[in-house]
Amino acid sequence: MGTWIMAGVTFREAARKKILWMAIAAGLAFLALFGTGLHYQMKDLAARGMNPILLKQIPGTMLMVGLYAIDLLTVVMTVLVSVDTLSGEIASGTIQAVATKPLPRWQIVLGKWLGFAAMMTAYLALLVGGINLITYAMARVTAHNVPQGFALMWLESVLLLSITFFFGTHYSTLTNGVLALGLVGLAFLGGWIEQIGAVTSTTSAVNVGIVASIIMPSEALWRRAANSMQSPLASVLNFSPFSSASLPSSTMVVYAGVYAAVALFFAIRSFSRRDL
C-alpha cells in the first residue's frame, strides 16, 4: 500500500512541479524539429527523382539518428528527474515526516522508483512512438523491430534510474548527478572506442570498450537497441553510433538487467540502514 502511495506522490510531484510537462514539451519540440527536417528532406529527394531504395534508406538513417537522440535525451532526463528525490529529501528533512509513518523504508524507495519508472516509460513511449509515426506518415518507414528496441532503451533508462537511486542514498544531489552522468559519459566514450577498435581490428581498444560496458552497460544497451531497430541492410553499411561493428553480446543485456536490480537492491538496503 505504502509503495503505491509513494509512487503516486512521485508522479504528482513531477506533474505539479512542471518537470513532467517541461520534459514532454522538450520531447514534442524535438519531434517537431525532426518532422520538419524530414519533411524538407523528403521534398528535396522527391524533386530530384531519387532512386526508390535510397528514398527509403535516407529517412531510415534519419530515423536512427532521431532514435539515438531520443536515447540520450531519455537517459539524461531519467537522471535529472530523479537525482534529487532521495538525497534532496534527506538533506531538507522532508523525509522525516514520511519515514516515521507506518510504512517500511523499502516501500518509500520502491514507490518512488516505480513512480519515476512509470514516468520514463511513458516518456520513452511518447518519443519512440512519435518519431516512428512521423517517419511512417512522411516516408512509409518505421524502425525494424520497435518493441525490442523500445525494451532495450527502456532497460537503459531503468538502469540509470536505479543507479541514481543508489548514489542518492549515499551522496548529495550534485555529487549524485555528477557520478551518474559521468558513468553515462564513460559508457558513451567506451562504446566509440570499442567500435573504432573493431573497425581497425585493434583488440585492446575493443577490450577497453568492453570494460567500460561492464562498468556501465548503458551504451551497450543502446547498440543492441539500434541493431534491432535498423534495417538489416543499413546495419552492414556504415560505421556509426548504430553500427554493429562490435555488437555487444546478449549476455550484456542480461548483465545490465541484473546490474539495475542489484543497484536498486543496494539503494533500498542503504536507505533502510542510514540515519535520516
Partner: peptide, 17 residues
C-alpha cells in the same frame, strides 16, 4: 513499523512537499 501507527511526530524543522 507497526507501532508507528500509534505515534505522531512533529519534526524540529517541519518541512514537507
Amino acid at each position: 513499523v507497526g507501532t508507528r501507527r500509534k505515534i505522531g511526530f512533529l519534526p524540529e524543522h517541519f518541512r514537507f512537499y
